[in-house]
Nucleic acid binder design. Structure first.
Lengths: 236, 236
DNA sequence: GAGTGGTCTAGACCACCTG
DNA sequence: AGGTGGTCTAGACCACTCG
């Protein structure tokens, strides 16, 4: 959280999530934000653009931007900030760590090609289940190269958040990500977690996170049950 | 294709797709592109950022950007420019119009809320099937408000492309889009098109395109069979 | 140390919206 | 007509890469 646009983005996001700016409200114009925070317009715009991509505001030429109505029953998870922003009404998003984080050796046929250095060091796997209200919706396996990282208990997490922990304790920031999507029938294990019948279609996502540390990538494989909530995103 | 960054993006994209810049090649630095095309750096960067989001180049601090290796068996369709960019080796992407475009009245329970004006006018539906090589991968239904648009035959299409047609003939540019994803079992009709057994999981996408014409939105509902090719995208 | 991409500033013009 | 967001310019500093 070092760049100006990230700080501004975080401030506005907080105000939106804490209902200082309510759904349907206008937010200050780019010009106002420039003056209020002593920033150049392009910096303000970068912050607002990211808020738009996360589905928090809508922008229209000639009008002020407004806080999005969060009525959708969609999960907005195609942003590297992950899962937090989203989902109105139906209930809050909760994250549960299924096991203690554990060490693994990279599988020979990992879903993304690995560098030699990555293969030499092992990885730490974190298993998490996300729920909206009572409904489990996302089962995630995250793989972090063991280089200079030591997480051995869920108590090591800051604010119960993996990425927050990486940022605060290790200075690791997520900058970008690439992913691949596949629709697949749920396995017995996945079905059990989501409380659905085996074979029910689920979304399987493979993800590779790019960090601010050159050569350091974080990988993730997760399943989404879209029967209760769809997956939403915005793009250009 | 009016803005400078869009023109530059299109030029670079052409060079990449026509293999003037081959996978693994470096492309000219931002500074070079500034001078060559007499543009400001931020304009060059906007073009390159969009190419990155479409998966055509990779960027690294301190190094020149390079043309991405298109080895992935993934469809890169989360960009409003649609389908064209993608998929190496395995074969070319083809688009087939399944029927003549036909008029429909909006369904009462359309997948996105409609304005009164939209409901009053009807819509034109275009059914298309996309294939990679021999494999059909995407069955799409696109709905265009009938306002000031008259497409009645597939021969009305420019370059066999719907969006190209809207741009050239009607001055309609797609700027942004929002979408929702659901994993679902294929219906009999969908299964028949993809030549799979009924119930095989497919990805169902609902999409709303925002255009440069205020109040004009284009809607799309499509199915992706991800058994042969996954769906890929990049984000921040 | 020179080159590169990431961030940032301080202006500008335009098309669009509203009163 | 004045305000708004979308595009654009012409600079600047930084962290990083590489020879």
């Amino acid at each position: 959280m070092q760049h100006h646009y990230q700080k501004l983005k975080a401030k506005l996001k907080q105000k939106i999530l804490k209902n200082v700016y309510k759904p349907g409200d206008v937010i200050p114009s780019e010009h106002d934000l420039m003056e209020r925070y002593s920033l150049a317009r392009s910096t303000v715009r970068q912050a607002l653009d990211e808020l738009w991509k996360e589905g928090l505001i809508t922008k229209t030429r000639g009008k002020k931007s407004i806080v999005a109505e969060n009525k959708k029953k969609a999960l907005w998870l195609f942003s590297v900030k992950g899962f937090s922003a989203v989902v109105g009404e139906e209930g809050e998003v909760k994250t549960v760590f299924l096991k203690k984080p554990y060490k693994v050796r990279w599988d020979k046929s990992f879903f993304y090609p690995l560098t030699v250095k990555e293969i030499d060091t092992g990885a730490i796997c974190v298993e998490r289940l996300r729920s909206v209200g009572e409904f489990p919706v996302m089962l995630e396996y995250t793989y972090i190269p063991e280089t200079s990282i030591s997480i051995s208990s869920e108590k090591d997490f800051v604010h119960n958040s993996l990425f927050e922990t990486l940022r605060v304790k290790y200075g690791i920031d997520i900058e970008k990500a690439e992913q691949e999507l596949v629709a697949t029938g749920s396995t017995k294990e996945v079905a059990a977690v989501f409380n659905i019948t085996q074979g029910t279609p689920v979304l399987h996502v493979y993800r590779k996170y790019h960090t601010n540390k050159p050569g350091l990538f974080i990988y993730s494989s997760f399943y989404c049950y879209t029967g209760k909530f769809s997956i939403g995103n915005l793009f250009e």
